[in-house]
Design a protein around this nucleic acid. Structure first.
Lengths: 202, 202
DNA sequence: CCACGACTGTACCAATTGGTACATGCCGCA
DNA sequence: TGCGGCATGTACCAATTGGTACAGTCGTGG
């Protein structure tokens, strides 16, 4: 009779009743958010966009905040997957690897995802707790593999960390430039200049 | 009698009745926004924080959007002023100039302003019209003086543009790193590495 | 002294928000 | 067939939002 709604007694792990459906919803949510922004997200509009009522979003995620967390986490995961799946043909020079990585990263189809990245950064820098975890991994998560690559390529371990940090920052700066200006050629040229400085001429 | 409120018949220049008071308000608004973020800004909270009623903000700015525009513009202006007022002692090497610039830019007292910059970027990338003008000047406005400096320092004009764009992007990437991690020493070291690559060793 | 116009506060409005209560439908199990 | 529980929708709530109407205050010029 009473049939009380027991959606958020789930506890803090917060996973909704049907994990499959939940994952499907968060996936659709990330797509929508990558395309339309996360700043003025409202449960009703998001629901309407992905074909459920806002009631369902609350049902599966407990609250807007937790949905937010899930979106951020999934978005991060996508970015990570993207990097891990880039197939490295052996025999390429480090510069070529970097070049390919840059190409992959600036694929126009990823523009929404990249914009979302910077948008979330902005929120996280402001201390929004649901986006704050991003700040932790923002540098360190990417630094480790890059340092490893640097060392593997023969860098002095002491310098490798600095070089990795520098490379990461430069890529992000140029990515922001690209998103803001859309000047693909100009940004690519700047990237080439960087690679020349970074790996030596030719 | 009727005393109709004629605050926004001002037209699109939108300047309120008393420019002095208006400027004072927008200044206080930028301070508050640099400290507390611009994402969840509400006229009432902002008013309470800077000591006026939200009614006054509407009165002087016509609408929230126009206040937003004014905040963005003023924030940009501050950043510009900051750069123009850095006194360049003559006889410094380009690397030293860059070093000083970096020091000035990473002054902890400016952290709020820098965070605001990235926050506004995020909103602008998402196409919020009141922040969109930022995207125009985001690169070009800073590129010209940098290119001039590069050429002045003897760079081939063809490469100067690429080098300038690269330098700008790297600075921003490292700034984002600094804001996210707070690891001043690590970021400074990466910056030193960059300067070594950029201007040659020592 | 008064009238006028600029400045500011209070009260209010419709719209939208996140979240909840209740009702309904649907599917599996006995 | 009937029952119970999950999934979903509809209707609703209090709070907050940007914006407006109206009224009061105050200095200035006549």
């Amino acid at each position: 009779m009473v049939n009380k709604d027991v959606s958020h007694p789930e506890g803090q792990d917060g996973h909704g009743p049907d994990p499959g459906r939940r994952a499907q919803l968060v996936d659709a949510a990330v797509d929508h958010v990558a395309a339309h922004g996360i700043a003025d997200l409202s449960l009703r509009r998001l629901g309407a966009a992905i074909g459920v009522s806002h009631r369902m979003l609350i049902h599966y995620f407990g609250s807007k905040e937790q949905l937010f967390v899930e979106i951020v986490r999934t978005s991060e995961q996508r970015q990570r997957d993207l990097m891990s799946q880039l197939q490295l043909e052996p025999g390429l020079s480090p510069a070529d690897v970097a070049r390919r990585l840059w190409q992959q990263l600036t694929d126009p189809r990823l523009a929404g995802q990249e914009r979302l990245f910077f948008e979330i950064c902005g929120h996280a820098l402001r201390g929004r707790p649901e986006a704050a975890p991003v700040l932790e991994g923002l540098v360190t998560d990417w630094l480790e593999p890059l340092v490893a690559a640097e060392v593997g390529a023969g860098s002095d371990p002491a310098v490798a960390r600095n070089r990795a940090r520098l490379g990461l920052a430069t890529v992000r700066g140029l990515l922001l430039d690209l998103l803001a200006t859309g000047d693909r050629a100009g940004v690519d040229a700047a990237m080439e200049e960087f690679l020349r400085l970074y790996y030596g001429p030719k």
